[in-house]
Structures are given as C-alpha cells and as structure tokens.
C-alpha cells in the first residue's frame, strides 16, 4: 500500500513536469497553429542556464530566475527571427525548420558548455527525504516540484479565466481571424504566448536539473512524451494538458512499477521481467491510441 502511494507520488511528479512542458506547447499549437519540435530545446536551455547560474551564485532562486528569463527571451527571439516566417507555410516546413533548431541548440550547448554533462544539486534546504507517513519516505525536492507545478497550474488558470490577456489568448485559440479583426495586436500576442510557453519549458528544465543529468539533447526524450500528452488532452487546451499530463505520468510510472509484479503471477520470472519491461514502455502509447479511438480530438479539444 505504501509502495502504491509512493509510486502515485512519482507519477504525479512526472505528470507535473509534463504539464509544464505541454502547457506551452499546446498553446503554441492551438493558437498559432505551429508545430514546434524545438520546444524541448527551451527545456534544455532552462536547465543549462539554471545550473550555470546556480553554480556561479550559489543561490537556487538565481538559477530559477536565469532559467526563466533566458528561456523566455530565447523563445521570443526564435519566434521573432524564425517562426514569424513560417505561420503561413505548411506544417512540413515548420517541422523541418524547428527540427533544424533542435540540432542548432544541441550543438550550441555543446560549443558553450562542452560535451560533458553539467552538475546540479538540489539546494541544501531541499535536500534529503522526509517521512510523509510511517514507512513512506519521499525526497523533499520532488515534493517541491509537485507543489511548484500545482502553483503554476493555479496561476495559469487565473491568467486564462480572470485576465484580459487570458481572454485574448482563449479567443485566439478559438478564432484567429476574428480576434485580429477586433483590433488585437495578434503579432505581439503570438510573441507573448510563445515566450510564455518557452518560459514554462525553461521552468520544467531547471526543476529537472537536480534530478536528471543536464546534457545536450536532454529535451528530446521529454518532447515525445509531451506530444503524447497534448494529443491525449486535446490540442490547444490547458485543461487537456493538465489531465493528459497527469494521466501519462501515472500510467507510465505505475506501469513500470507494477506490470512486472502482475506478469510474475502467471509467467516465470525472467520472462515476465522482459515482457513487462516492453509493455510498460508501450503503455502510454496504448493509452494514446485508446483515447483517440474513444475521442478522436482528444479529451478536451479547444476548437469546437
């Protein structure tokens, strides 16, 4: 039972990271109709800048600030220099251009920081583990990640449902031409939305820094999961991103944790481990396929 609780926390933590990634991507996708494969690069930029600033200043908050500013600025710069030219092109052109950006950023980090992965530890006040329940020990840092993610989800909800900017973004997601006709500066709105998306990716990156290895190309592995999340959640929908991310996080973690045990009941051990490992890594794709059969536009599609 305690193991189940711990694994649910693990799933939640993965889900939160995925949510931060997919919130930005789904906005860009939903509002600007741009497929941005380079979203993972901003995650990497956040992690690199965060690790560097943390190491230089010794302050974790300085690391977070550097990551947020850096990834948001890099995002807006990319929007201004590259994506603006692609809004009216086909999706294939966008895929090619943003795929090129992935390689560009990976090689850039290698040139600036070298091939060797960077080191980043949690700040001393978030180190170690605490006992949540008798026998349930959990790393403090991961709890902090969960809390931060929930806070960001609340802030986003506030931004979208209670502010003028949020209203414009939502309007942009449902009807681009109309909001342009109503006199909203759609170019500026696009740059802001893109910057907000990359800022969230940078936050996810800097929070992953103490858990994962900060290395060139670290964004690609999470990018695939992020796409799965927004396909499940429905493109352009923040609510879909929340639900999709938590679903994917939980299914992936619980699958990895408990499938081997389940298979061991009716298969011999060595064989069960092999089969379970394969099925666990397919679990989220099976989930995606099932969701698409049931609701072809995802759980909460933004466009009616």
């Amino acid at each position: 039972m305690l193991l189940l609780a711990e694994q649910i926390l693990n799933g939640l933590q993965l889900g939160i990271t995925l949510f931060l990634m997919s919130a930005g991507l789904t906005l860009v996708f939903g509002i600007m109709q741009v497929i941005n494969l380079a979203h993972g690069s901003f995650y990497m930029i956040g992690a690199y800048l965060g690790a560097t600033a943390f190491a230089a200043t010794g302050s974790f908050f300085a690391g977070i600030a550097a990551a947020l500013c850096g990834s948001a600025l890099a995002g807006m710069l990319v929007e201004f220099l590259v994506l603006r030219r692609l809004y009216y092109r086909e999706h294939l052109d966008q895929v090619l251009a943003t795929f090129g950006l992935i390689m560009f950023f990976n090689e850039l980090t290698r040139m600036i920081w070298g091939r060797q992965p960077l080191f980043m530890n949690p700040p001393s006040w978030l180190e170690g583990s605490i006992e949540l329940l008798p026998g349930l020990i959990y790393p403090v840092y991961r709890l902090a990640v969960i809390a931060t993610g929930l806070l960001v989800a609340l802030l986003l909800w506030f931004l979208f449902s209670r502010t003028r900017l949020g209203m414009q973004i939502r309007a942009g997601a449902s009807n681009r031409q109309m909001i342009g006709a109503l006199g909203v500066n759609i170019r500026l709105l696009y740059t802001l939305v893109f910057g907000l998306g990359t800022l969230l990716a940078g936050l996810a990156g800097v929070m992953a820094g103490p858990i994962l290895s900060v290395e060139s190309g670290m964004g690609e592995s999470i990018l695939i999961l992020t796409f799965v999340v927004i396909v499940i959640g429905g493109i352009g929908s923040i609510r879909g991103a929340v639900v999709g991310a938590l679903l994917v996080g939980l299914v992936d973690t619980l699958g990895r944790a408990f499938l081997p045990m389940i298979f061991r009941i009716f298969l011999d051990n060595a064989y069960a481990d092999g089969v379970a490992a394969s099925i666990a890594s397919m679990a989220i794709y099976i989930l995606m396929a099932a969701t698409l059969i049931w609701r072809p536009r995802g759980l909460f599609p933004a466009h009616g």
Partner: peptide, 21 residues
C-alpha cells in the same frame, strides 16, 4: 530483482521505489 528499463530513460523514481520495497 532484475529490472530492465527503457533505453534512454530519464526518471528512475518508480524503479527506486521498487528497490526500497
């Protein structure tokens, strides 16, 4: 126990919880 993880896996929280158990 003998666990085979996905190649390139980034997060080992689930496996570590299983080791703890």
């Amino acid at each position: 126990g003998e666990v085979y993880t996905k190649l390139g896996q980034a997060d080992y929280a689930a496996e570590i919880a299983a080791i703890r158990a």
